[in-house]
Design a protein around this nucleic acid. Structure first.
Lengths: 191, 191
DNA sequence: CTATACATGTAACAAGTTACATGATTAA
DNA sequence: TTAATCATGTAACTTGTTACATGTATAG
C-alpha cells in the first residue's frame, strides 16, 4: 500500500500509535512512556517524533481526540478507519526483517585491538545485555499479562526481547572465551 | 557556557568503511558487496550512502586512494590515522545496544487480527527467518574463516547472526503455537 | 549485438535524534 | 518555594532509502 510516487513508506511508528490507541485511549505523553518501556525493545521512539505523528493521524482521521486533562493533556483513541488501516498494514505489507545492531558491527572490527582488550569488550557487552535482560524480566513480572488478548499478545512480543537479550549475552560471553583462547592471535588459530 | 553541541554522532557507517579498508584495499563497489553479504545482518548499507561517505573519509585523511581500474574503479585503503580513529571509536565510545525490529513491533498488534490469521503470520515469520538462517549458513560455510585474525573475528560476528535468526525462527514458531492454543481468544486464556 | 555485471555518482525524500522552548500541577 | 513530574510542541541536524542518471567492460 501507501505508494507515493512509487516510494514505499514504512511508517511503522504511525501504525504503532494507532495500535496502542486501539487498545486504550491515551495521551501523547502516555504513548511516549509506552515506547520507552514495553515497546523499547521493538521500536523505540521519542516524544518529538510522536507528537507530530499524532497531528498527522488526526488529519487522516485514523485517531480522534476524546478528552483532555490538566496541563493541556489531550487524550486520543483510534477510529474504526485507523484500526482498519492498521489491519491492512499487518496483512498486506511485507515486514522488514532486517537486523541492524551496532554491537555486532563493532565485533567485526575488534581484530584491530589487542586480543585482551577485544575480549574485555565482549565481556562488557555480555554484562550489558544481561542487565537489559534483567530489566525486561522485571517488566514482564510486574505486569498483568492475562487481562486481555492485547496484553497476552504483548507478552508474546516481549518474549522475543527476553530471548534476544539472553542470546546476545551468551553470544558475547562465548566470543570473549574464543578470543581468550587465541582466536584473534596472529599465530595459528586454536583447534 | 560551552553549548558546543553535545550532539553525539554515531557514524557507524564511517567507521565500518575504515574497518573494511584496514583489512584489505577495496573499491566502493567492493565495499557495497561486503555490506550486502557479510555485514548485511549487522549494518546494511546501500552504495548511495557509501560513495558520499568515502568522499568524506578521503577529506578527513582516514582513507587514501591507492589505485584504479577499468570503468573508473577506484581502490582505497585505510590510513594509519583512519585505523587510529577506528580504535578510538571502539574503545572510547559506548555502543548503542538498542534493538529495533519491525516484526516484533508487528507482533504487538496481532491481537487486532483473527487468531487464525495471527498464527499464520507468526508461521510466515518463522519460515522467513529459517530461510535467512539457511542463507547465512551457506555464507558461513563458503568462506575461509581461518586465514587471518580479521576473518576469524568476522566469524565471531557472523555467529551472532546465525544465532539470532535461529532464535527468531523458534520464537515465531512458539508464538504461532501459543496463538493456536487460544492465547489471543477473547475468552479465558489456556493454562 | 546485447544482456549482464561492473562502476560511480547525485537528488529527493523519509525517518530518527538531540536540543530548544514553554508552561502547568503537584508533592516535599 | 522549589524541585520533580507532567505535558506539548518545534527546530536543526543526521542517517538511511529509493530513484534518477550515466557510462564501461565482458561474456554469450
Amino acid at each position: 500500500m501507501s505508494r507515493v510516487t512509487g516510494k514505499i513508506k514504512r511508517m511503522s511508528l504511525r501504525y504503532a500509535l494507532v495500535g496502542l490507541l486501539a487498545e486504550e485511549p491515551m495521551s501523547g505523553y502516555d504513548l511516549t512512556k509506552r515506547f520507552a518501556v514495553s515497546l523499547a525493545n521493538a521500536w523505540p521512539a521519542q516524544h518529538s517524533q510522536i507528537y507530530p505523528e499524532l497531528a498527522r493521524l488526526l488529519d487522516l482521521g485514523w485517531i480522534r481526540q476524546t478528552g483532555q486533562g490538566p496541563r493541556g493533556r489531550k487524550v486520543y483513541e483510534a477510529t474504526p478507519e485507523g484500526v482498519s488501516a492498521l489491519r491492512e498494514w499487518l496483512t498486506s505489507t511485507e515486514p522488514d526483517r532486517t537486523l541492524r545492531h551496532e554491537p555486532i558491527l563493532r565485533a567485526f572490527f575488534r581484530w584491530t585491538l589487542e586480543p585482551d582488550q577485544a575480549a574485555q569488550q565482549f565481556r562488557t557487552d555480555a554484562r550489558a545485555y544481561a542487565a537489559k535482560l534483567a530489566e525486561l524480566e522485571d517488566l514482564a513480572g510486574s505486569l498483568d499479562w492475562e487481562s486481555s488478548p492485547a496484553d497476552r499478545c504483548g507478552r508474546l512480543a516481549l518474549e522475543a526481547g527476553l530471548r534476544l537479550y539472553r542470546l546476545l549475552s551468551e553470544w558475547a560471553e562465548w566470543a570473549a572465551e574464543r578470543v581468550e583462547a587465541g582466536t584473534l592471535d596472529d599465530s595459528d588459530p586454536p583447534a
